[in-house]
Design a protein around this nucleic acid. Structure first.
Lengths: 151, 151
DNA sequence: GTAATTTCTAAACCTAACTTTAGGTCAAGG
DNA sequence: CCTTGACCTAAAGTTAGGTTTAGAAATTAC
């Protein structure tokens, strides 16, 4: 009976290093779904430790919580995820990460030249329209390196 | 006389693609210092186009506005920055960027193995304690991959 | 059985980086 | 001159990702 009543939120917090408040917040964002015991307290599976670890890793990769929720939806709902399940959804992360690294590397390789070179031709500039900028929710496009759009 | 009265904020906004409100915000944060004309309106130098471009680039690299302000303080105050001046302060950016790329690359190279491998030994895990996490302002350390701190 | 923890909810608060709003002033064109 | 559009300030609002607070109920420890 004591064997598996599930973890209390405090125990899960200790195991993951997350704050209790953060775990409750993640639940509100649909990232994790504990059940409740007779007294109404949250109880978690041991697999949820790994689930939260995944959340933390994905955050480091720059994914937002809604994006992470979508990725996690690729896990089976009816059983405890296997290592294979985890590897499968990790592929998506890997692609995301590859893209970020590519973008940063491209920026780096052109940094010295582009900042000081006097190049004012936007379409030629390696810093023009990087991926990250495209999805920024600001208003309108952003141009870099100081020339007008049509130059 | 018409030659150089300086740019109005709207013109600078058009040249950089930034919102007028963002440019005023950057001024409040000490990133740019226009002068005022007789009527109290902001006027900018042409070199400020490049200055704001630099701000946008540095932001993409993950620097905060206070950090960017500090980097920009390396520019000469008494004259228009030369390409050499820009290249000099770009070196700092380059170091920052190198570090980010290294971290991401390290994470990527261990992702597949670490997510699914069943490794629960924290000190061995490549995802343990990445640089970014260390400076996060949350409360206390964060552990990854689901084991207790002392394991 | 009682005291100390832990957990519960809801709502308010926090930082970064901006935008929006409100009410008023400046500048340019006809 | 007068209108229109650009500009001004100050303050409040916004989003993401949480934390803090307050008061109450459950659980655990002795």
């Amino acid at each position: 009976m004591v064997v598996s009543d599930g973890l209390a939120i405090g125990a899960l917090a200790q195991r993951t290093g997350l704050a209790v408040s953060a775990i409750r917040y993640y639940e509100a964002q649909g990232l994790i779904s504990p059940w409740r015991n007779a007294g109404g307290q949250r109880r978690y599976q041991r697999a949820d430790i790994r689930r939260l670890s995944f959340v933390m890793i994905a955050q480091q990769f720059g994914l937002t919580l809604p994006e992470i929720r979508d990725v996690l939806s690729g896990l089976p709902g009816n059983r405890t995820p296997t290592p294979k399940d985890w590897q499968k959804i990790s592929k998506g992360l890997r692609a995301h990460l590859d893209q970020r690294i590519d973008t940063l590397t491209r920026l780096r390789d052109n940094l010295d030249g582009c900042i000081g070179c006097g190049c004012l031709s936007l379409p030629k500039c390696a810093l023009y329209n990087p991926d990250d900028r495209a999805k920024s929710n600001g208003s309108g496009p952003r141009y870099l390196m100081g020339d007008s759009p049509e130059a």
